[in-house]
Design a protein around this nucleic acid. Sequence first.
RNA 1: GGGCCAGUGGUGAAACUGGUAUACACGCGAGACUUAAAAUUUCGUGACCGUAAAAGGUCGUGUGGGUUCGAUUCCCACCUGGCCCACCA
Length: 1002
Amino acid sequence: MKKYDPSKIEKKWSAKWAKDKIYEADISSGTKPKWYQLVEFPYPSGDGLHVGHVRSYTAFDILSRKRRMEGNNVMYPMGWDAFGLPAESFAIKTGVHPSITTKKNIANYKKQINSLGLSFDWSKEVSTSDPKYYKWTQWIFLQLLKHGLAYKARMPINWCPKDKIGLANEEVVDGKCERCGTPVEKRDKEQWMLAITKYAERLDKDLDTADYPDRVKSQQKNWIGRSEGAEIEFLLDFKSKPKLNENRGPQGEKAAIKVFTTRPDTIYGATFVVLAPEHIWVTLATDNDHDVLDNKEEVKAYIKTATKRSEMDRTALGGEKTGILLRGVVAINPATSEEIPIWVADYVLPHYGTGAIMAVPAHDERDFDFAKSHNLPIRQVIEPIFIQETEPGKVRSDKEWVERVAITAIVKHWRDDKYIGLKWKKVNWETLITGGVENNQTPEEAALAEIREETGYQNLKFVKALPRTHAKFFHVPKDVNRFAHFYVLYFELQDDKRESLADGENDIHEIVWLTKSEMEKFHLPASHRYSWETLMNPSTLWTGEGIMINSDKFTGQSSQETKNEIVQFIGGKGVTRFKLRDWIFSRQRYWGEPIPVMYCRTCWEELGINNKELKEGQDYVLISGQEHLIVPVSEKDLPVKLPKVEKYEPTDTGESPLANIRSWVDVKCPICKGSATRETDTMPNWAGSSWYFLAFCIMDNLKSKELVSKEIFSDDVQSKFKHWLPVDWYNGGMEHTTLHLLYSRFWYKFLYDLKIVPTSEPYKKRTSHGIVLAEGGEKMSKSRGNVVNPDDIVKTYGADTLRLYEMFVGPFDQMAMWSSDGIIGPRRFLERIWKLADRVTNSQQPKANKIDSTIHKTIKKVSEDVEEMRFNTAVSSLMVCANELEKSESVSKEQLELFLKILAPFAPFVTEEIWHDLGNNNSIHTESWPEFDETLILEETSTIAVQVNGKTRATLVIKKGAEESVVVERAKAMEEVDKWLKDKTIIKTVYVKERIINFVLG
RNA sequence: GGGCCAGUGGUGAAACUGGUAUACACGCGAGACUUAAAAUUUCGUGACCGUAAAAGGUCGUGUGGGUUCGAUUCCCACCUGGCCCACCA
């Protein structure tokens, strides 16, 4: 009997598999259906493979192996996201070229991956830092440039003073650098930008049809931040410079401020206008050439302090909102024609909407805060509406609607600080006093009548009216849907004089006296809750929808339904806006793809800034820059390779170290043949990973010497894309939901528009895995010293054990905690399989039917679980099956082989070894996936739980398909059951076929 | 502040569409093998009451309610933990 020695067999088989190339995808075999399985490729860091990588790579290795066995042409590729900061930081410290470090790390990763038996197709390996690869990354950039989606802009960028690098908004977390935690500063810098916002609508809409988990979808939607609203113009009136009012724009229009709002229905409550400090009109109004403000210097001073503050400070302040009034000019509210003041305040963000808002303090918290601290008028124009969407009182679609004017009354105790609440008897309602208003009654009269009728108390003092409310709910006692318009009144009882209630009144509800804190816990319906809050805190805001008031001809209408009408009425325009901002694409770094453009001063001077397009051959598109003409590098000169440099630090001016390499920077201008300079910015990390899944499909073509355009539109590439795309299943980390996933979708859609790729979405299905935490539930990190190195585990237990353990540890999409105790379980399991095999090889035994049933059940369970990513329960069912096999007197070779086949994707090494020991010469991984036999799974008997009053008292084993009457008789006859039934009457018997029988006693 | 998710033995976790709660594994306890230990192996292992031992019973899926013959699963409220977003008009 051989001993199970993983180190021996694992080495042997990984060499053999590599030699036989059993995992290579083959496009030429057109008969097999394709399966493109993708996992996110790693950044090859110096720390080596993380056990988290092992978890997700193994999971989809299992799926890929299963797919292959099911007869698919599977591509499960791997590559390297090889540009990145760590290699560059290392270079700065040691002077070792990042390409050397990267190469070393890749070799290590590859060795580790192979030791795990992962079935990646290495013939498709790509590395983003390989010039043959980034030639194409640069080419895609040039296409973006040609199509107006790449542009330069002077932007206040997020600057990390420690890393000396500009950061994308996405890389700033809580105002700090995502990498090093240093607070981020603002700096003005000319940057390359990609106009991802032009794709915002499609990136949002196409999510609806994508098979992504809901949380991924909602995170993307949230990030894109689509909102529908309107742009509305507020005309300006220059009070102290009336002459300016006669100035007209080119179309004869008057000076105006355009605001963006999602709530045009609140315009009658817009009592002032607020501009962001960066707003272009403010910039103009405060420059030296203009003189429109009475307090220009003051405003300038404010803008200076406001813009100096980083975004962090601006958002962190929370409470106090600063701002300054523009003197000498007012805006005209287009709905009311009122003159309203204009303020500049930094709570308005320059990049969202138009950078200007109409402030409606009565219905917006930020505007409310601002109005309060600057003493600005607050005018209510919406009365809240509450639609009951939960029981009790949920609106019912099958019931008729009755609209009624009604009152809500809050009544205070004559002596104590207590208030009346009603507990309803026939419904589970807790409310304030409420009732209808008759035609001839004032609300006050109606409320008084209602209070006396429902409580019997007589002497009440009307104190004040509270804001009205409206509610839609189902009135349970009356059995109708009610649309109630409430007057809300507050009374104080004068004494305890009380008369007895009318007949029946006591049966409807009970009166309870509640303290303020008890009232907080009382389950009031939303409209009553709101009224209570307005009593306790008169400045309670309503920011939701409702019924319009104080709005001229719109008064009484629903705010939601009136939005469009109002926009029309005031001459506004409905628009859609996004939170998503354009992608800052420049990095002042060495270790990235050079941005393939040049700058020519001569051309710019000669051709002038307005000459936007000039062609010389097909390869040049010229775009006017700031002080240079931007000349894209000709396609035939791609790739623009990274030159060797001496020092890797960014320059003090924040330029990339490339700027110091004159021999590289100075080039000849392809147009004027004069001198030009290269762009020294490089692309961000996200560039290479935005299309790597395309590269896997066309590996051979990447090496081609043909021009990229020629190659990419070739029949060869096109047929490869048509064959493999879209990716069938893409798994990755939750942390890439907003950035990588969005960027790659954006590039893919762009390439779709160029008719390069065949579909508009790159990934058919996306899932994400949970992270692997260290033993104590902390994140694994070098500084904590709690990193688990997969190499050590492979050495001690073998790769198969590691694979099984990581699958078994818990649900794949949830986080998992590493446990050095738990890993012994899977190892013992494999040892037992090993021994089991010995028993079979030693003697041929006859078939045992019970074992067949067990195995086929397991085939079914494992097949289903793998598809649903329930790897943990798949492993557990394999264990259950093995336990049964062990217990059995005899296991045949055929039976064991079946079991090995379904275990093979999980533990590829042991299964291959045993498979060969059983006398097979081919690889088990080229076998086909077993199908389960339904007839073997079906059992002849079923076990029925016998319950009395819902409690299980016995179980009954009975033939399948037994009549209900038979089951009932047999169950009743059982001793354990009979003793509970004795002397009792059975009022009901519930029978669920083949599951339970429940006797309900009277 | 807003959104999403989770809470089950000593531990990681199972439980399909509302139908025998705790599968599988770790750990722990007892026995076998051994001079001994490790490894292996057999049995046991939710809590409480009960018994010499059984039999048997009650409780039990974060807390409190509800719907149901029956709830870990559905509904309401609350507590705790995690993740994401956060002046986006």
